[in-house]
């Protein structure tokens, strides 16, 4: 059996990646002819299908990204923009792992369509660290060792940001109730709660 070479080229001499790209371009072209004048922003009453380029404003910067109607915001962020903080833990948003802020509201990125997010302000967990500056919430998570495997942590941190923005003086009981939509299979809740209380005490929710 011959070993496939590292470029992924098959016998035809066309790499799989190039082929996929090509078929995508064809689909995009179809969509464009189907919906002229939309400028591919997928924002009108005219139905769009296939690959379309849209602009998403993520962490203050507009990004062009190619999506299908069925692409979720989470897929656009992770696959299109390489922002892999938000996690695909549950398919229906039950875990809170894919939380981002959309127009300042906590939103499960895996239960919204990317095309519905055009024109909205999207903030992901990646925005909480810039250079040497670390936001108070992730810093408190570090101080309190509030993550174990770490998979739920980005979603949890966004949940805390959203919750404290609305409840800056929350009590422990309110924090427990308010973070109800985020699940941690390792059970780090015992450390997350003190971390959030520290942020409340410091008044430093970013």
């Amino acid at each position: 059996m011959s070993k496939p070479d590292e470029t992924g080229r098959g016998r035809s001499g066309v790499s799989r990646r190039a082929f996929l790209k090509g078929s995508g371009a064809a689909a995009a072209a179809t969509a464009m002819t189907g919906a002229p004048g939309l400028e591919a922003e997928a924002q009108g009453a005219e139905p769009v299908a296939g690959l379309t380029t849209i602009t998403l404003t993520v962490n203050g910067t507009p990004h062009k990204v190619e999506v299908e109607p069925r692409t979720t915001l989470l897929e656009a962020l992770r696959m299109g923009l390489n922002l892999t903080g938000a996690k695909p833990i549950s398919v229906d948003g039950a875990s809170g792992g894919s939380l981002v802020l959309v127009d300042d509201k906590p939103t499960s990125a895996n239960t919204v369509l990317a095309m519905d997010m055009v024109g909205k302000k999207i903030v992901t967990v990646e925005s909480l660290i810039s250079g040497d500056r670390v936001d108070a919430v992730p810093m408190a998570f570090v101080h309190h060792d509030a993550s174990q495997c770490g998979f739920c942590t980005p979603g949890f941190i966004i949940a805390v940001k959203a919750f404290l923005a609305k409840n800056p003086k929350a009590t422990e009981a309110e924090i427990r109730a308010g973070l109800n939509g985020n699940l941690c299979r390792c059970g780090t809740y015992a450390n997350i709660i003190p971390a959030v209380l520290e942020v409340v005490k410091g008044g430093g929710n970013g």
Binding site: G44, A45, P47, V48, A49, P69, R70, M115
Partner: peptide, 11 residues
């Protein structure tokens, strides 16, 4: 998800 077409009406 099965592929579908998407429309975003204003009215």
């Amino acid at each position: 998800m099965k592929a579908f077409e998407y429309a975003s009406p204003r009215t």
